[in-house]
């Protein structure tokens, strides 16, 4: 319940920040093609990553699996933000990646779009909190980490991944740390791609 409440608060805060911060944004065709690029790269990478996730889960358990693999699913948002550097780019990047993953036949179907939208919103919070002035390593890592909250909340609702409270804390922490690491990787890659 607490995770769902935190996620709901995050979504409301972000919606407000997006409304206030994103009013003056103007996207060019180049921004859209870059978002399309991020969407297709991650949309395609997300699909086989499920297999990696299940293998790691079998070996290292739920916490280890989240720590090692979850962050990749959060990478599209910081990557899009680093490459486009405009408000809402994180949300768009993650949502388009989720939509593309949904349109490639996967067992996840349209849940990918729902996850992508929720994770993108949470990631956007990191940039919105800094009033979109910084797209640096700390903010990118945080953008990756924040996406863990809606992801774990949706897992709890859909897959019934609800564990005893102390174990749940480890799961959230594992997903959060994974998001931080992969968010930082997204920044490092993005810095090379768009110096």
């Amino acid at each position: 319940m607490i995770i769902e409440a935190i996620s709901a608060v995050i979504i409301v805060v972000i919606a407000l920040l997006l409304y206030l911060g994103g009013r003056r944004v103007r996207y060019t065709s180049v921004d859209y093609t870059v978002i399309g690029l991020v969407g297709v790269v991650f949309g395609v990478v997300f699909v086989p990553w499920w297999t990696v996730y299940y293998i790691v889960k079998a070996v290292a358990g739920p916490v280890g699996a989240r720590l090692a693999t979850y962050g990749l699913w959060f990478m599209a948002a910081p990557m899009a933000a680093v490459l486009v550097r405009k408000p809402m780019s994180a949300l768009l990047g993650e949502t388009v990646a989720g939509l593309i993953e949904s349109l490639i036949p996967t067992a996840g179907g349209f849940t990918n779009l729902i996850y992508g939208f929720a994770q993108g919103l949470a990631s956007e919070l990191a940039y919105a909190a800094g009033l979109y002035r910084s797209y640096g390593p700390v903010v990118s890592a945080l953008a990756g980490g924040l996406a863990a909250f809606p992801a774990v909340a949706l897992d709890a609702v859909l897959f019934g991944d609800i564990y005893p409270w102390d174990y749940m804390t480890w799961i959230i922490l594992g997903a959060f740390v994974s998001g931080l690491i992969y968010g930082l990787v997204a920044y490092l890659v993005g810095r090379v791609v768009r110096p």
Binding site: Y32, G36, G39, V40, G43, V44, L92, V96, I100
Partner: peptide, 17 residues
Amino acid sequence: GVSFSVAYAFRLMPLLA
């Protein structure tokens, strides 16, 4: 723009592969 992003992404798929 978003629709264009999605359409462009699918056009890009064979090249990226």
